[in-house]
């Protein structure tokens, strides 16, 4: 369990799997003896939000609870955006490069290579489409919803829109992105002929497994934190009687 008094360097030495989270909060290393709270404060990060996300990441049983409702939706949206950037700029290109290297040095037939690279290219396309849909439509909608809720009277035009759209519809079509990656791992582990470059092959499998876990945790933040709170806010705005 990570607490606010713990020295930040211990968070990293004890749980290196949390490293991908740091850039998402714009936290850089070189912590010295500073506590989690101090480091967060220095970087303008909401410490409670950091703790919730870090602990959720470590605990497979974690159910985001009351803790997460203390933060503005804006904080959650920012976190989701930087996670998306991490997937697009770092995680996905990283594993893609390794897959290509693995294919280049392999004894696979042309068709087997085409199967893997074709699969990954299509996956990447779906992935980018999914993320840009969220970044360009869903998240701005959430921010606008939160802004409207602080106004004395909701913009009638926005209210009109709200009557025909709900975040629950997004939830319905919110397909999980990790299943296809698991298929790719299974393909390598069970069905493709073995690779000579074991090191590289294992790195690819490790990267895929880490990405799958990250995507599952991320989907949890969206499904269990973002969507319920947005739905609640939608309700509230719709049920506020027109002034006058």
């Amino acid at each position: 369990m990570i607490t606010r008094q713990l020295p930040m360097y211990r968070v990293v030495t004890d749980h290196p799997q949390l490293l991908p989270l740091f850039p998402r909060f714009n936290l850089k290393l070189g912590f010295g003896e500073k506590s989690v709270e101090q480091v967060c404060k220095d970087h303008g990060v909401n410490v409670d939000f950091f703790l919730e996300i870090a602990n959720a990441y470590l605990d497979e049983l974690y159910v985001p609870g009351e803790g997460l409702s203390f933060f503005s939706l804006g904080t959650v949206v920012n976190y989701i955006l930087s996670t998306h950037n991490y997937y697009m700029d770092i995680a996905l290109p990283g594993v893609e490069e390794k897959i290509h290297l693995l294919m280049d040095g392999s004894a696979l037939s042309e068709k087997e290579i085409a199967l893997v690279t074709g699969f990954f290219n299509d996956y990447k396309k779906d992935f980018l489409a999914h993320i840009s849909q969220e970044d360009q439509h869903i998240l701005p909608y959430v921010l606008e919803l939160e802004r409207q809720s602080t106004l004395e009277r909701t913009d009638p035009e926005f209210l009109q829109k709200l009557r025909s759209y709900s975040i629950r519809e997004f939830e319905k079509e919110h397909d999980r992105l990790e299943t296809s990656l698991e298929h790719l791992s299974t393909l390598i582990i069970k069905y493709l002929p073995p690779f000579d470059d074991l090191q590289l092959c294992h790195q690819v499998l490790n990267d895929l497994a880490a990405l799958v876990k990250d995507l599952v945790d991320h989907a949890d933040v969206e499904d269990k934190v973002l969507i319920p709170r947005v739905a609640e806010l939608e309700e509230k705005l719709l049920n506020t009687p027109f002034p006058g």
């Binding site: 699969f119 299509d122 996956y123 779906d126």
Partner: peptide, 8 residues
């Protein structure tokens, strides 16, 4: 949706 996805 993709053919490659269905194949795998």
């Amino acid at each position: 949706k993709s053919v490659s996805g269905l194949t795998v």
